[in-house]
Every structure is written in structure tokens, then in C-alpha cells.
């Protein structure tokens, strides 16, 4: 391994299911090779809460609420290279299926008129991030440098992507590693 400083990587999940992060862990023992090259900043893997300047930011999930917007902007500010990781970050994914309904209908169904609800009422605590009208892919909010689709992208696809990116190569996924589902 080289003596050059390690690449600093941050990851986060916005409106996602953490499935992409789980898939990330599916690179299995290759993570040992990876940590020779990178060190992690803010990420569910490190539990670091405060984001510092990074070389690479991996964003899972789409943008569904005000907090997602703030976190995404912070990632864009701090990360030299920003990656949309997985279907939800790329096109909104499953959470964006709520876009078929007015927001009021979604909240009413969830908190007022749905089945098994006690103390009906839409929560209005300022601690709870407000929902956007629609769920958006992250490229509609910030500039995104790379996209890796998949629900989730496979561990192999993530591995291919990271090794090629870190090696400064153009990204070229084998056919079986490019999928949207």
C-alpha cells in the first residue's frame, strides 16, 4: 500500500432503508483492502455524527423531508465527490411511490384515518422534520458527481465502483452489476 494519505469517505442514508449500507457490507473481507485505502468520516459504520471535509460522500436514499435537504447540502459542501448510491438516491425509489398521492392524504392515512390509530392527529413537534410535497432524487437538490443504481447495488457493484473510482479510472460496471432493481 502507498504512503499517500487515505481517502476520507462519509456515508449517509436519507429517505432510504439502509439496504445500500447493508449491501456495502456485502463486500465482505474486501473491506480490509478498502480500509487500507480509505478512512471513514461521518457514517453509520463509524457513528461519527459531525461531518468534516471529505474526499468522497456516498448518499443512500432520496430527499423526503427538510432534514434530508440539510444533510444532503452538508454532504455536498464537505465532500469533493458526491455519489448517489442506490435506487432511492438515483430516482426516489420506493419512498417516491407516495408521490402518487397528495401529502395530506399520506399524513391523514398514517396519523388520522388509518387502521389502529390511537390519539389521531398529525404530529407537529418542531423536532420532527417536515415532509416535502414529494420525494425527490438527490440530483434534483444538489449537484451529483456519480450514480450507482440498484435496489440495492450489489456488494460487487459497490466494490467495482469504489476500486475504479479510487484508482482514478472511468467507471465501467460489468453487465450483471448494472441493474435498477
Amino acid at each position: 500500500m502507498s504512503d499517500s494519505p487515505k481517502i476520507r469517505v462519509a456515508t449517509t442514508s436519507l429517505a432510504g432503508c439502509f439496504g445500500c449500507h447493508m449491501s456495502f457490507l456485502d463486500i465482505d473481507e474486501r473491506i480490509l483492502d478498502l480500509v487500507d485505502l480509505v478512512e471513514f468520516d461521518r457514517s453509520p459504520i463509524t457513528d461519527i455524527k459531525q461531518l468534516g471535509p471529505c474526499d468522497l460522500g456516498l448518499v443512500e436514499g432520496g430527499v423526503a423531508n427538510a432534514e434530508n435537504v440539510e444533510v444532503l447540502r452538508e454532504f455536498r459542501r464537505q465532500c469533493k465527490v458526491l455519489v448517489a448510491l442506490g435506487a432511492c438516491a438515483v430516482n426516489g425509489g420506493i419512498p417516491a411511490m407516495r408521490n402518487a398521492f397528495p401529502l395530506a392524504d399520506c399524513l391523514t392515512e398514517s396519523y388520522v384515518g388509518g387502521i389502529g390509530i390511537h390519539n389521531p392527529g398529525v404530529p407537529n413537534d418542531p423536532e420532527i422534520p417536515l415532509l416535502l410535497n414529494k420525494v425527490h432524487p438527490i440530483h434534483e437538490v444538489v449537484k451529483v458527481d456519480y450514480f450507482l443504481p440498484g435496489c440495492p447495488p450489489s456488494g460487487d457493484a459497490i466494490w467495482t465502483f469504489l476500486t475504479e473510482l479510487l484508482a482514478g479510472q472511468a467507471i465501467s460496471l460489468p453487465y450483471t452489476q448494472l441493474h435498477y432493481d
Binding site: 435537504v69 418542531p126 417536515l130 415532509l131
Partner: peptide, 21 residues
Amino acid sequence: LDAALAAARAITGRNDAGAHL
């Protein structure tokens, strides 16, 4: 972005700093 929160503001009655972008 801020306009995209308008419906949620109306439903929750919120208008605090966190209810805006």
C-alpha cells in the same frame, strides 16, 4: 425547496425556523 414544504406547514400549522428551507 421552501415551497415544497408549504403543504406540510399547512397541515401541521408549523411556521418555526425548522419548517422552512
